[in-house]
């Protein structure tokens, strides 16, 4: 390895030039901290959203179940209506 003596002034100028072009280690640390903080926030948000999706799906499942059960129940009501008229006509014929 060869060592070269660089004048102090030149060394400072070069360092200054480098420092002005690149972000400092301290700044990098801060950036990483900020990013990590954002990841944590996003993680919490995802968890909340997942909970919401679960709630909503169970609610549509409920709506679907309810509409199907209502339609099935209505079928019976309609059939009963037919049977009621049958009974009424039967009574009329008898009297």
């Amino acid at each position: 390895m060869m060592r070269v003596l660089v004048p102090v002034r030149l060394r400072r100028a070069v360092r200054g030039w480098f420092d002005s072009r690149y972000i400092s280690v301290a700044d990098h640390r801060q950036d990483i901290k900020d990013a990590l903080w954002e990841v944590q926030t996003l993680r919490r948000e995802v968890v909340t959203l997942q909970q919401e999706v679960r709630q909503l799906t169970s609610r549509t499942g409920d709506a679907q179940r309810l509409s199907k059960e209502t339609a099935d129940a209505l079928d019976h009501v309609l059939q009963n209506e037919v049977l009621v008229w049958q009974a009424i006509d039967g009574l009329k014929e008898r009297s």
């Binding site: 309609l78 059939q79 037919v82 049977l83 008229w85 049958q86 006509d89 039967g90 014929e93």
Partner: peptide
């Protein structure tokens, strides 16, 4: 309207049981 002897479940001409709604 159904007569007294008629029922909700009947049969089509091909003998298949069919239910009235």
């Amino acid at each position: 309207r159904l007569d007294p002897e008629d029922e909700i479940t009947g049969r089509a001409a091909d003998e298949h049981p069919v239910k009235l709604r």
